[in-house]
Amino acid sequence: MKNLKRYRLFFILILGYGVLYFINESLFNMSTQKTSSSLLEMILVLPPVFILLGLLDVWVKRETMVKMMGKDSGIMGILLAFFLGSAAAGPLYAAFPVALTLLKKGSSFRNVLILIGAWSTTKIPLLIFEASSMGLNFTLIRFGLNIFGILGIALISEIVLGHKELEEIHARSLSIEN
């Protein structure tokens, strides 16, 4: 029952398409044709993407990396933050709880911002998907710029926020229930 409820919007839309058939048949034909062509396009791409997502989820352990991203982790911590964010799954707001956990365990805020940046925009399965729907050039230009952008945002934030604010962020993270 709960499962069917998730499909409610889908069923309403199917119903809408049914109504459309009687009101305006040519618009119905055009819409179904456009829908099925994008459906076909997606069905060719999605299965491998999700299998990769599953493999990453199983093989990449979060806890082991949490330890290695502290203040003095230097370039290693930055790389790990990038990797952890890129290997993750889920929307950006799913990154916030993970970021909080990292803060609590002593990761630097800079690395947390890098993780959030990577999580939002350089996820590996999503990059493959992006390349297949937007083209390789679009994806590579965006990816290249994003690496610098993510680093830049993290470094600028760290400087602008300053020592005092950063300590407050760490202190606050400890007081929030996860």
Binding site: L9, Y17, T35, L46, L53
Partner: peptide
């Protein structure tokens, strides 16, 4: 599981895009 998770949203969006 993660595919089935986005499936309803995914199908709906495709129908909306088409229209």
């Amino acid at each position: 599981k993660s595919f089935e998770n986005i499936l309803p949203q995914f199908l709906s969006i495709l129908l909306i895009i088409g229209f």
